[in-house]
């Protein structure tokens, strides 16, 4: 579990994060949602320790991350995997070398063991046999999956995903969502996803926080999204008239079913 306690982050005079406290649960897909510029990416970077908060703390289970020294922070980071918005695969390395990089750097595994681990991770993301390809030779969706393979190669306890669906078509986005969800449940890890993709919210939102102007404007799960009357949430999730209409239709249908159940 990861816990944020009263996080504040200020850049020059601009307060981007203003007192965020939240728990991100183990074995669940925890979503941070919000409009562009709301502070989602800054919050994710604070949680993963890439930037330090102006005040507040981030707890990895029972450890206060920002109170640790560099060596201890590195030890925590060995348990962290991250999927970046643009995948962040090293261009000069093949897919295999990209995934193998953390193993080369931090383990004493034999070459055979490393290759077998790389192959397992590639199979896990449904991309067997692309070991020798370079990132520039595969599609954006495949790059994301390779990014996931690299993130899970060290068997992390915490998985961070920064806009995993950005730039992907809806069908591929669903594949990525399902993959992240299944990896989270299978390995019982704490997954935090920063997204503004509606499908992700409705499909894999086990624990959702909505960030608005640096504070948490709403929290709940995917089932509560439809029922909530929080105006900021509704304006964000059902931004277009078409989506608002869909929501009303879904709510009507839900009410009908509830009435029928009551009558029975």
């Amino acid at each position: 579990m990861i816990r944020a306690e009263n996080l504040f982050k200020t850049f020059d005079d601009h307060e981007v994060i203003r007192g965020i406290s939240s728990e991100f649960l183990k074995g669940k897909t925890n979503l941070i949602i919000g409009r562009s510029g709301a502070g989602k990416t800054v919050l994710l970077k604070l949680l993963v320790g890439l930037i330090s908060p102006t005040s507040g703390s981030v707890w990895y289970d029972n450890v206060d991350f920002f109170s640790l020294d560099k060596k201890q922070k590195r030890a925590i980071r060995m348990k962290v995997g991250m999927l970046f918005q643009a995948s962040a695969l090293f261009d000069s390395m093949t897919v295999e070398e990209n995934i193998r990089f953390p193993l080369d750097m931090f383990t004493n595994m034999t070459k055979k063991e490393k290759l077998s681990r790389v192959d397992y991770c590639l199979e896990r993301v449904n991309l067997p046999g692309i070991n020798r390809k370079y990132p520039s030779e595969i599609s954006g969706g495949m790059q994301k999956r390779v990014g996931i393979a690299r993130a899970i190669v060290m068997q992390p306890e915490y998985l961070f995903c920064d806009e995993p669906n950005s730039g992907l078509d809806p069908k591929t986005a669903i594949v990525i969502d399902e993959l992240i969800k299944s990896i989270t449940v299978e390995n019982n890890i704490t997954t935090i996803i920063n997204t503004h993709d509606m499908n992700s919210v409705m499909e894999i939102g086990d624990n959702i926080i909505l960030i608005h102007e640096g504070v948490i404007a709403w929290r709940g799960d995917k089932a509560e999204v439809l029922r909530s009357d929080n105006q900021i949430l509704q304006n964000f999730i059902f931004a277009s008239p078409f989506l608002q209409h869909l929501r009303e239709a879904a709510l009507e249908r839900q009410n009908e079913l509830t009435l029928r159940m009551d009558k029975k």
Partner: peptide, 12 residues
């Protein structure tokens, strides 16, 4: 391209 961030998170 966030390669340095990716390495930092790995613990490099």
């Amino acid at each position: 391209k966030e390669h340095i961030d990716a390495m930092e998170i790995m613990g490099v």
